Amino acid sequence: MLQRIAERLTDIRTDRDYRTNIGSAVALEPAQHPDDDALGLTLAALAIQRDASKPHGQHRLLQALVEATVPASLVDAHARSHAIAADIEDALADWLPLPNGLPVQVEDIVFLDRPEGLPVVAVQVALTIRYRR
């Protein structure tokens, strides 16, 4: 499931009518980004739970986090962070990760200025994906 979402996020490029090119640096592991000076987008699973609102225990909720980092040294780091968040939301809007599934839901968007003293501005986009196993 995460791989399919990651593939969808690679479409985020200005030549496809998005605001940014963050789709050129999508990873499933944070260590895959070269250094703190590079733009990067990381997708990670947070939890998988049974959907209590559905009978028979066949439905699941996958909670995931998309985190983008923007070098804080850029003059427009905060504006670019907001553009990235909008691009992520646009890329996933009404998109079905599985046939006969439900669209990915963007739950929260959080902006972090230099988290833990790192030289980056970070954007965290929390997602929920409902699916049947």
Results as ranks from 00 to 15, higher is better:
A126R: 13
R19K: 10
Y131K: 11
A64R: 01
A93K: 04
D87E: 04
A83L: 07
L118E: 15
I48H: 13
V121A: 09
S81H: 03
S73F: 09
L65R: 03
G23P: 08
T20N: 09
V75C: 04
D76T: 05
R114I: 04
R8L: 01
E7S: 12
A52Y: 14
V123L: 10
S24R: 11
L46S: 09
M1A: 09
S53N: 09
A72Q: 01
I5W: 03
I129P: 03
A6F: 00
D87W: 03
S73R: 15
D15V: 15
A25L: 10
V106R: 07
V70W: 02
L39M: 13
V104N: 07
P30M: 11
L98R: 04
L43I: 12
R16I: 11
A93R: 05
R19C: 01
P34A: 15
L127H: 12
A64M: 07
A79S: 07
Y18K: 07
R80N: 02
A31C: 08
V70R: 01
H59M: 13
V121P: 04
I84E: 02
I84K: 00
Q105F: 05
G57N: 14
V110S: 03
A44E: 11
D15H: 13
I109E: 01
A31S: 14
V121N: 14
P115F: 12
A83V: 00
T20M: 02
G23K: 09
E116A: 15
I88A: 02
D37N: 08
L127P: 12
A64G: 03
N100Y: 09
T14V: 13
A77E: 04
T128N: 11
I48G: 12
N21T: 06
R8W: 07
L62S: 07
Q58Y: 12
T10I: 10
R13K: 15
E89P: 00
H78P: 03
S73T: 08
H59C: 13
R16D: 14
H56S: 15
Q3L: 12
L65G: 01
P99M: 02
I48T: 15
R132S: 14
T128E: 13
R19S: 13
D35M: 08
Q3E: 11
G23F: 08
P103F: 10
T10R: 10
V120H: 06
L9E: 05
A44R: 11
T128D: 09
Q32T: 10
Q3W: 08
L28P: 04
